[in-house]
Design a binder for these strands. Structure first.
Length: 439
RNA sequence: GCCUUGGUAGUAUAGUCCGGUCUAGUAUAAGCGGCUGUCGCCCGCUGGACCCGGGUUCAAAUCCCGGCCAAGGCGCCA
């Protein structure tokens, strides 16, 4: 197969910009052959680019020899450039087609492809992830990741508007930041290091200088999880703010969720249609339930949870049926929250920590933090952690650390909510989980 | 890590319970041919598969054992 050079051809229009008003105009489009419908005397080519697709019509007896030969050599997934004349027509759904004057085959594809290029036969997630780049070229996936892009923009726009400064904390760390989740070890020259599980301690420290900070970035958990909502590498949206408490950051969080839902609903109408999904803009304020209230509700559903323990997944599923929307769970017991979460002044058995739930999935978690060094040391010990391992963190508390609060949102889980996708691996370009390290 | 289910052409599936006309069916993708208005085009033809190893049996895709792989659930965790 002779490959044509790109040469001096440059795209004049995306496929979606080909409109009936351009009737008679010569255009150059680039894209991939998604379908070929051959009717003998006439051949229809569906060319897809990242914006959509358009039909190129090749009437055998009316086109030149070059076009005829090239169109006969085409196979699905070939990358092509088409220079042609836009023709207004009533015979396509879009009301336009392109009659080619010249076709360049820029890149070929080896058949059989690992996935059905037309998408008529859908493949399983494992097969799709093995051929991920090809999978990502499906219009559903392009739509999905455009929504992710819009979500990220909306997040940054909102937090920046609220006066937060974007930061980047280290991914390579010396010790476990907060206990809890397992870490991936890394060889750091002659030292043992780990991949960060969260920016928690760093972002808290930075409230001393920048007061209001946020970070959007990947973190790593070496957990054995095998579920539709866990990854070994995931994106966390973290904020931390000085001189505020739990209530303030919960308010900020619900406003952020509202803003993101509204923005995506407005700006991604086309993408949501492709995904056959609707974003519901939630009503403010979100409902708030205390841990005790949740336990009582669960008891009514015959789901018993030992007071002080975390809520097990089946119990969350039951909760999701009772509350199919966003809601906060507050007043968590001290035992169920990490050492840096502040205990309530009037009842030290409870914390000023909260979770944001969407149906049965935990979307975010946060709270007021401990900013008293002595309390922090005591809390570390109570949770079986060695204060010596946290000496660099604790030192910062001698420099005038302000009272502060913050939260972290699981970005992929937020995107799942926005797109209606049920497997977290679908919303990650190249997901990492317990058994997947490639591609 | 534990539990459950599964592994059949490139993809998705039927067949597996109850072993034998299974020479393994179908759809889609691919190749060839036909067709001038398709839009999941249509029609005809062609090629393409039982995860690996062992066992039981006259006979194994099918039953048994071991392994590998996957999906999902649980725990962990966000």
């Amino acid at each position: 197969m002779q490959i044509d050079p790109l040469g001096n051809w440059r795209r004049t229009h995306y496929t979606t910009q080909i409109k009936p008003e351009l009737d008679g105009t010569e255009v150059i489009i680039f894209g991939w052959i998604k379908e070929i419908r051959e009717l003998g005397g006439i051949r229809f080519l569906i060319i897809q680019d990242r914006e959509g697709n358009v039909q190129v019509t090749v009437p055998r007896k009316k086109v030149n020899k070059q076009v005829l030969e090239k169109s006969e050599a085409l196979q699905t997934q070939y990358s092509v450039g088409v220079k042609g004349t836009v023709k207004k027509t009533t015979m396509t759904p879009r009301g336009v087609e392109i009659i080619p004057n010249e076709i360049r085959i820029i890149s070929t594809a080896q058949h059989p492809l690992p996935l059905d290029p037309t998408g008529k036969t859908s493949a399983e997630i494992d097969v799709r992830l093995d051929a991920r780049v090809l999978d990502l070229s499906r219009e559903e996936n392009i739509a999905l990741f455009k929504i992710e892009h819009a979500t990220l923009n909306a997040l940054r726009e909102f937090l920046t508007e609220k006066g937060f400064i974007e930061i980047h904390t280290p991914r390579i760390i010396a010790t476990a930041t907060e206990g809890g989740a397992a870490l991936f070890p890394v060889n750091y020259f002659e030292q043992q290091a780990y991949l960060a599980q969260s920016p928690q301690l760093y972002k808290e420290q930075l409230t001393l200088s920048f007061e209001k900070v946020f970070e959007i970035g990947p973190f790593f958990r070496a957990e054995e999880s095998h579920t539709k909502r866990h990854l070994s590498e995931f994106i966390s949206i973290d904020i931390e703010q000085a001189f505020v408490n739990e209530e303030d950051v919960m308010h900020l969080l619900e406003e952020l969720i509202f803003h993101v839902c509204q923005t995506v609903k407005e700006k991604c109408e086309k993408e949501l249609t492709v995904l056959k999904h609707q974003v519901e803009v939630p009503k403010l304020p979100f409902k708030r339930f205390t841990y005790d209230e949740i336990l009582k509700e669960l008891a009514k559903e015959d789901v018993e949870v030992q007071w002080g323990e975390d809520i097990p997944t089946p119990a969350y599923r039951a909760l999701g049926k009772l509350h199919p929307y966003f809601y906060f769970i507050t007043h968590w017991p001290a035992k169920a929250k990490p050492f840096y979460i502040k205990l309530r002044d009037n009842n030290p058995a409870l914390t000023e920590g909260f979770d944001l739930m969407w149906h049965w999935t935990e979307i975010a978690s946060g709270g007021t933090r401990v900013h008293d060094k002595e309390v922090l040391v005591r809390r570390l010990q109570e949770q079986g952690l060695n204060p010596e391992s946290f000496k660099y963190h604790l030192k910062v508390f001698d420099y005038g650390i302000p009272p502060h609060a913050g939260w972290a949102v699981g970005f992929e889980r937020l995107v799942m909510m926005l797109t209606g996708v049920e497997n977290i691996r679908e919303v990650v370009l190249f997901p990492r989980d317990r058994s997947r390290l490639t591609p």
